[in-house]
Simulated scan of single mutants.
Amino acid sequence: MAESGARLLVVEDNKVNRLLLARSVEQLGHRVGTAENGRIALDMLREDRWDLVLLDVEMPEMDGFQVMEHMLADRRLRDIPVIVTSALEGLQDAVRCIELGADDYLRKPVNAVLLKARIGSSLEKKRLRDELRLTLRRFATPEVEQHLDESGFALGGRHVHGAVMFTDIRGFTTLSEAIGPQECIELLNAWYALMFDAIGAHGGVVNTMAGDGLMAIFGAPLPLQEPSLCAVRAALDMQEMVKLLNDERSAQGKPPLKIGIGIATGEMIAGYAGTHQRASYTCIGDTVNLAARLEAHTKAIDKGIAVDGATWAAVRERIPMESCGVFTFKGKTVATEVYAA
């Protein structure tokens, strides 16, 4: 069965009830832990992994309502199914339990047949939630996952202040023709792994990958202190990682890689774009367009990193950069002073 071998925590202050309920659960093939009050239960839930909680309502020190309030407020605990077991007969108490996140409500004395059915149903729902979360992790960053968990999904966006980065591999089309599809995929996977590591280490979120290029955001969906500085430091780390990768490639007789990185800082709209069936987290606005133009401009100025004036102003006290002049990029009416590292 899907739920076989699950770990259940029985929370009950009455010792006889606790032992009998634990025995009933063990007879269903599950592993059982017990807690005599809500405070002990919360400690156990935070220290180990549990698949389901059988929770009494009336307990000393901390009752079942308080336990559910704490679980609801804790991202690590809120997805653990809770089946309330109670001798309380009022409809109001059952409603309150459901509002606090309980998956089910069983009256004492607990009927063994109902117990088996409710445990099976709750564990199956947890399995489906876990599979959904695993799928989300494959296609979304931890930051986007956390944002969805805290704020929920809604199409649209909000104004944020942050930094946007674009980067790609120079001459990749020519390179891919020379090395063949299998080696091309392996090279891209290695490059992405290095770039993701450098960007993530400084709080950035990769939200778009296209061929050999990617776009990263610093400051959304979660706020980030000094997003410009984080973006530039990530860019410097990316260059260093490419240098180390090139050392390996050189030893294997392979041509080196060269990347270009463009960074712009400013206001943008961040949020979910698409439809309710298919959407992605992204940013739009002039800052995004400028970062893309700066990345392309690294070829013209023969530099690895190009940033706008707002980014330079935020980092100039800590990271040396040189002015490369003022340029008016395609599609823009206002000239941009470009700085490079």
Rank of each mutant, 00 (worst) to 15 (best):
G180H: 05
V160A: 13
R138W: 06
G162R: 14
T141G: 08
L188H: 01
L194W: 03
L134R: 12
T174P: 00
E186S: 15
D168T: 03
D212V: 09
R138T: 11
L134H: 06
E186T: 01
L155K: 08
I169N: 11
I199F: 05
I179R: 11
E186A: 15
R133Q: 11
F196T: 14
A163Y: 02
N189S: 15
W191V: 10
E183V: 14
A201M: 05
G152N: 06
P142T: 02
D149R: 13
L128A: 08
I179N: 00
E143R: 10
L128W: 07
P181S: 10
F139K: 08
D149V: 03
H159E: 12
R138Y: 07
I179G: 13
I185Y: 10
E183I: 06
A201Q: 13
G171R: 07
H147C: 09
G204I: 04
T135N: 13
T208G: 06
F153D: 09
L187T: 05
M165G: 09
G152C: 13
T167H: 06
D149N: 14
E131N: 14
I179M: 15
A178H: 03
I199P: 00
F166N: 11
G152D: 05
T135G: 10
R127A: 10
R137G: 10
H147L: 11
L134Q: 12
G203D: 00
L128E: 09
V206A: 13
E177H: 12
A154P: 00
R158C: 01
F172Y: 10
W191R: 12
L136W: 04
L136M: 13
